[in-house]
């Protein structure tokens, strides 16, 4: 089972200080997240799920603890190495879709690929395949202004998937979407985990997601209160919190 663990967080702690008030957001938290699963971090807003996501994904440095991702101690890497690690292994989907208004769907997806140094043909091929995978092949040449919210989020997912990351992080990916679009997005994320064996870690307070997750970590006040495995075919995950 251990070989399926993609991320291992140990003793993670994080506080934010505003003025003279210091707030403990994550408290001595340890967690393992497995490949090939859609893991959901759920809980009320302010429970620390987005912060945990940021720490596990190499965006926010923790005050204490360590994160081992794909066998690499993430927070021992320098800034450039960390950037390179993210480039090669990590995909992100954010609540705001953050698409460049000037680019059409293919270009949105090609843009991060271009930093990987792939050839023009391979870049185009991967971008088309990724758009195909999220069901937007017919929207390839449209700009964000011409797409619905759900379609924009699917372009953002295609942008993250085209790099073929082993780790995919999604922060509130369905919060800004109607139920049908939200459902589509969940299905795509779930399929990415199943088909590509990607670790998908999703922070959300959207209750619709719970039914689709392979595993749900319920968080409150910076701790994991419950770790639930759902009856999808499991591929292995543990918390040691």
């Amino acid at each position: 089972m251990v070989e399926h663990v993609a991320i291992r967080g140990r003793g993670i702690g994080k506080s934010f200080t505003v003025g003279k008030v210091s707030t403990r957001v994550i408290d001595e938290l340890s967690v393992d997240v497995a490949s090939g699963e859609l893991t959901l971090l759920s809980g009320p807003s302010g429970c620390g799920k987005s912060t945990l996501l940021a720490i596990l994904s190499g965006l926010e440095r923790p005050d204490a603890g360590s994160v081992e991702a794909l066998g690499e101690q993430v927070w021992l890497l320098d800034r450039k190495a960390l950037q390179r690690f993210r480039l090669h292994h990590i995909g992100f989907v954010f609540q705001g879709f953050n698409l460049f208004p000037a680019l059409n769907s293919v270009e949105q997806v090609e843009l991060p690929l271009s930093y990987l140094g792939l050839g023009a043909e391979e870049t185009r091929r991967r971008a088309w395949a990724a758009l195909d995978e999220v069901g937007l092949a017919h929207r390839r040449h449209m700009r964000p202004a011409e797409l619905s919210g759900g379609e924009k989020q699917r372009v953002a997912i295609a942008r993250a998937l085209a790099k073929r990351p082993q780790l995919l992080f999604a922060d509130e990916p369905t919060s800004a979407l109607d139920s049908v679009s939200g459902q589509t997005v969940i299905d795509i994320l779930h399929r990415a985990a199943r088909v590509h064996g990607t670790m998908v870690l999703c922070a959300s307070h959207d209750p619709r997601l719970i039914a689709h997750a392979d595993r749900v970590l319920r968080m409150e006040d910076g701790r994991v209160l419950a770790d639930e495995h759902h009856p999808h075919p499991p591929m292995g995950a543990h918390t040691t919190s």
Partner: peptide, 18 residues
Amino acid sequence: GSISEYATLNALGASHGA
């Protein structure tokens, strides 16, 4: 005005230099 888009690119691995 495009700071979130730039930040997303950076998250996906594009360097500040790029």
